[in-house]
């Protein structure tokens, strides 16, 4: 009996550094059925791609004798091109991301981190290299990178109200993923995206919003404050502001959509009230879009 209890205590000690983020992300990632991960062209890799007749320049040891024995020619077995991609993530960790309108809903930051970890798992298991921007974690493959990223993402956020996307440390011609609510200064976002486009980095912008931010269901005399209290707005009739607020929100989304299209990125809005699986699926397909 005591041996089992001891074992359990030690196991729990061991498990404590594992962030719960990882567990949730594993669960989420497991629901996405991984399809074929290949690049659909011949190249270096493990998977069989096609047989092609031998031509000058191929070494003898590449000949596939079994196939060749079935016919007169000699055939070389070609493998699929599987190249490890680099994917760089940036997850907004400002104060505004800590907002959740309902205690049943996760905060935006939690959902952002969950999605980031899940896509990381998918990518790493698919053989890509994943890292964080701003030199926080250079892209590496393998399971230990998972732990490292989990720890980094679970770290404390900044005290600023709204976050600015980091585009430093991008590997050229790689993939990037920015997850934020993009409520801050739009010029910073545009600058980061321009910088990324310069480097030839394509990626996806995922805007995470709370259902309350999307709907603005307020009425009456209200004082609105940002999460740190730095920004304040007082109104005597909140119901009147709704239409104008929604206009402004739509305008911002349009702007993000425009800049994303201009730089070849994808843009999507996700609400914390919706299921994370849908967002993950979108992220996965967005990462896969080569062209």
């Amino acid at each position: 009996m005591s041996q089992a209890a001891d074992l359990r205590a030690r196991a729990e000690d061991q498990a404590s550094p594992f962030p719960s983020l990882l567990v949730g992300a594993e669960h989420l990632a497991a629901t996405v059925m991984l399809g074929d991960h290949g690049r659909r062209r011949a190249g270096m890799g493990d998977e069989f791609w096609q047989y092609r007749p031998i031509h000058a320049g191929d070494e003898a040891r590449f000949v596939d004798w079994r196939r060749s024995a079935k016919s007169d020619q000699q055939f070389v077995r070609e493998k699929e091109w599987q190249i490890a991609q680099s994917v760089l993530l940036w997850v907004d960790s400002a104060a505004a991301m800590g907002f959740s309108s309902d205690k049943n809903l996760p905060s935006k930051g939690e959902r952002a981190r969950l999605l980031a970890m899940a896509i990381t798992i998918l990518m790493l298991r698919g053989g890509e290299r994943v890292g964080l921007t701003a030199f926080a974690a250079p892209p590496r493959s393998g399971e230990p990178q998972l732990m490292r990223l989990a720890n980094l993402l679970s770290a404390e956020g900044s005290d600023a109200d709204y976050g600015e996307p980091e585009a430093r440390g991008m590997v050229p011609n790689s993939r990037a993923l920015f997850i934020s609510d993009f409520m801050g200064d739009m010029t910073k976002v545009e600058a980061a995206l321009a910088k990324a486009a310069d480097r030839g980095v394509k990626g996806a912008l995922l805007q995470i919003l709370d259902p309350q931010e999307e709907a603005f269901p307020f009425d009456g005399r209200t004082v609105f404050e940002s999460m740190t209290g730095a920004v304040r707005h007082e109104t005597l009739k909140a119901g009147d502001l709704r239409s104008r607020y929604l206009d402004r929100l739509a305008e911002r989304k349009d702007r993000l959509q425009a800049i994303a299209r201009a730089t070849g990125w994808q843009f999507q809005t996700h609400h914390t009230g919706d299921s994370a699986q849908a967002a993950l699926l979108w992220l996965y397909t967005a990462m896969e879009r080569v062209h």
């Binding site: 505004a96 907002f99 109200d161 709204y162 609510d181 409520m183 801050g184 709370d210 309350q212 931010e213 603005f216 307020f218 009456g220 005399r221 209200t222 004082v223 609105f224 404050e225 940002s226 999460m227 920004v231 304040r232 707005h233 007082e234 109104t235 005597l236 009739k237 009147d240 502001l241 104008r244 607020y245 402004r248 929100l249 911002r252």
Partner: peptide, 21 residues
Amino acid sequence: PIKRRFPGVALLLGLEDAETQ
């Protein structure tokens, strides 16, 4: 008045009340 924490307040800045209730 009711006090609310709302990150979208960044979008509200500059909006005036249409009619002063």
